[in-house]
């Protein structure tokens, strides 16, 4: 602590002479900004990064990956977690990591490779005394600063597959549409089953019997069609399609642990799909992906039909293929 203070002091002295050098000194995460009452105007205020534009995290901010990720138009996603020093992390329901107050989850969305890489937005989830708070930060053109954008934004960009899209930065409420459960904001991604066992151990000294059971997305061909599709549906759909969440009224429950075929959509009629149903009668028709509303909506780009409703503007060819393979292999009754 003392050493850090001295270093910071030195950095301040040299600031005028070598402004560029000052940022190299490892800064500390500002715990009070995380737990305070305000909505910080810039990402910089948290102090999560040494080089924010290079996404180089400071001490205590740990990068992580998920085995099967959420599809976001092919964006590169850089995930970090911060837990205040000396605080315990545990597991809650469904193996969701339980982070203490003062923790933060940070996710940056970027497009382009190498020198061409452009940071678009950084979303943060802050665990405050009164619960989790989700905030979106929008990067400027010069990549020098990310500012709070509670109302979100639209940005024209080209995906890795070459599709020109209008990319949607979610507004604060839209954050909750996916992160809302029983009325409160909650993290979704960091569940034991979708986190590598080695990372859990190395980061928090934790182990869990389900750790990493969801397939690594890039290795999904070696997983069963069911595991690959069910992991994909859990990660991409089940934050809304589950009891207590945004699409609970549909009666569709796509969580990994759900094993009732009807809840998973198999021969289930839609409730409020409207034109989203296309000309189909059931969510999932075993052996018939072409007659399944679930896949029909995932293959659409038309707002009002397309699923998920938020967080993507293009069809995920790989994800839909995994779901198609699963439905095709389901035994016809």
């Amino acid at each position: 602590m003392k050493v850090g203070g001295i270093l910071l002091g030195l950095a301040a002295i040299s600031l005028a002479a070598a402004a560029g050098q000052a940022r190299i000194v490892a800064r500390e995460v500002d715990d009070e900004v995380i737990t305070g009452k305000n909505l910080p105007r810039t990402l910089e205020e948290f102090g999560f990064f040494i080089h924010a534009d290079a996404q180089m995290p400071t001490t205590g901010v740990l990068p992580y990956r998920l085995n099967t990720p959420l599809y976001s138009d092919g964006a590169e996603k850089l995930r970090f977690v911060y837990v205040p020093e000396g605080q315990e992390v545990g597991f809650g329901k469904d193996g969701l990591l339980q982070f203490p107050v003062g923790s933060a989850l940070i996710k940056t969305f970027a497009f382009g490779n190498g020198e061409e890489r452009r940071l678009i937005e950084t979303r943060v989830l802050l665990h405050r005394e009164d619960g989790w708070l989700a905030l979106p930060y929008l990067w400027n053109e010069e990549q020098t600063e990310a500012r709070l954008a509670v109302a979100g934004a639209r940005i024209d960009l080209t995906t890795p597959k070459g599709e020109a899209i209008s990319y949607r930065v979610p507004n604060k409420n839209q954050c909750k549409e996916c992160h809302g459960l029983d009325g409160a904001v909650t993290p979704i991604g960091p569940k034991a089953r979708n986190l590598p066992a080695g990372w859990l151990d190395a980061s928090f000294g934790l182990s869990h019997e389900e750790a990493g059971v969801m397939p690594l997305w890039e290795d999904r061909q070696s997983a069963s069609a069911e595991d690959a599709a069910r992991a994909y549906l859990d990660v991409n759909c089940a934050h809304c399609h589950r009891p207590g969440a945004t699409a609970s009224n549909s009666g569709l429950d796509l969580r990994w642990e759900q094993d009732d075929p009807h809840a998973l959509g198999i021969m289930k009629r839609p409730v409020a799909a409207g034109r989203g149903a296309g000309s189909h009668l059931y969510d999932v028709v075993p052996g018939k992906p072409g007659e399944s509303i679930l896949l029909h909506r995932m293959l659409s780009n038309d707002p009002g039909v397309a699923m998920p409703e938020l967080g993507k503007a293009t069809v995920d060819e790989e994800g839909t293929e995994a779901v198609r393979r699963w439905i095709e292999g389901l035994p016809e009754s």
Binding site: R168, G276, P303, E309, L310
Partner: peptide, 29 residues
Amino acid sequence: SQAGAGEGLLVTSDNVTLRDFAVENPKGD
């Protein structure tokens, strides 16, 4: 010219009053 979201306006809080306006041509609800 809506490009995203499943409805024009979504309300998820209690004791809300919506009055005296129109919504035209939403892509979903």
